[in-house]
Structure formats: C-alpha cells, structure tokens
Design a protein around this nucleic acid. Sequence first.
DNA 1: ACCTACCTGAGAAGAAATTTTCATCCTCCT
DNA 2: AGGAGGATGAAAATTTCTTCTCAGGTAGGT
Lengths: 125, 125
Amino acid sequence: MERSTRQRRAIREVFLETDRPLSPQEVLELARRKVPSLGLATVYRNLKNLQEEGFLVPVALPGEPPRYERAGQAHHHHFLCRVCGRVYELLGCDLTLAHLPPGFQAEAHEVTVYGRCPGCYSQAG
Amino acid sequence: MERSTRQRRAIREVFLETDRPLSPQEVLELARRKVPSLGLATVYRNLKNLQEEGFLVPVALPGEPPRYERAGQAHHHHFLCRVCGRVYELLGCDLTLAHLPPGFQAEAHEVTVYGRCPGCYSQAG
DNA sequence: ACCTACCTGAGAAGAAATTTTCATCCTCCT
DNA sequence: AGGAGGATGAAAATTTCTTCTCAGGTAGGT
C-alpha cells in the first residue's frame, strides 16, 4: 500500500505551489525547504510515482533533460529562459500545420520559445 | 593544417546528399557505404570540425540526442517520425508569438511535429 | 505501543552519448 | 620518395542523468 510520507507530500506540494515545469534538481531544492534531509533518489522515485498515478507528466525540451508539470492542463507550450534555464508555460497555441508535405501524418506538436524571462530581462549576455 | 581525408570527404558528402538532419549513428551508417572502416569517433570529430567551419549546425529535438544539418538554410522546423525515428525538414513557419506574457522577451523558437513519415504511414502502432 | 512492510538517504551502479588516449596510418609539403 | 604532423580506429574514460542497493527509519493497521 502506498504511504503518505513527509517527502512525498513535500514533493507534491511543490508542484501545487509552482506554475512552471520543474527539473528533478529544482524539485529537490524547493522540497528541501520543507524537508531538508530530502535526497535526490527520493525525488526521482516520487516523480515516477506521481507520473504513474497521473498527477505529473514529463515535459521534453530540445537539448534539455526532462522537466515535470501537473497533468491535465490545456494544450500549451513552453518558454525556456536562456539565462536562468527555467521553463515557463505559455497559454494558447496559434500553430497551424499547413506545410506538411504529402504523405506525412501529424499526431502532435511541440513549440519551444527561447529568450529571457522577466527576472533575467536586464542582464547582459 | 586541416587535411582532406577520405573519411572527412565521405562525411561531408553524406550531408550534401541527404535532405534531413542526421544523428551521429546515421552519419556513421551512411558514410560507411563510402568508407567501410569508418569509426564512430571519427564521425564525432568531424561533426565538430564541420560545425566549427560553419558547414553544419546542430538540431536539438525534445527528448532526443542532437542531429546535424547543413548550415545556412531558411527558417524551418522539423518532423520526427515516431516509428522510424528519422527527422525531416518542414519548410516555412506560420507561428505567431501572440501569447507571450508581459516581461518575456523571445529570441528564437523551435517547432517539432510528431507523427508518421510516408515510409511508416501504414504500419501498425 | 507493536510490528510489518514500505520508504528513505547516501553512495554505488547503470545507461547513453560523447570525448580522450594512443599506436598506427596517411596526407601533403619538399 | 621521404618525413613530419595531423587524422584515424578501437577501446577506455568522461560526463550527465537516472536507477539500484541496502541499512535504517517510519506510516499505519492492529
């Protein structure tokens, strides 16, 4: 039977309190504010559990290790800040797939926007 | 001084003869048709050289190791076949970034379309 | 409160992609 | 043709991310 531990609750809470996809490292750092002894292996174990129970889904971005976000959200895409590496959610999607060559069958798509987030707006680079 | 070797020529030719981004493994397989003794380390070394001299650029796709394509092409995006794993180029781009929240500054974007390529169209799955 | 099974933390191990090492090969200048 | 130094191939080493191992901790039914 699945138990409710401090660690598991802390990890779940982090996702309820954060509106952007998180990497395992980010989850570790945020959840350690609640449970300082938390280990990375426990983060990975619970990320897997939370996916299996349908609470989280993985978010793959080009050239990046996966992040995780809450499942069940409306169709949306992501913004990757080139300065701080954080990923944000972008609402809506105005992509139309008019240019598919003959014989190609589209099943899904991903849009990733790169740039600077508000917190990194004024930094050099 | 940089030498012209059979291996380097073979790798460069593969990209001139192929109109889609290639992974290091794909480059190895295609270039071995020209130089059967070719090793993977040489592929990696030459992919790096060809990037430095501006002939190739890396193509990052969500959850995938990088592919490489010829530099200098017009703005375009990519199609990843979920059956065979090959990546194709999609001409044009009708993405408009109307939904960026305040304070976010876009510098670039990537669109990846997933589906089936013509060769994998009729397979089950 | 007890006890059992599940959970945790730390480090070792594993997996996958890429780079390095090194002995040998080969291009290209003379 | 000869020779010097860059290039190659195979295997080992690295890097990065993730999973496993295992001894000890703890939730939750009784």
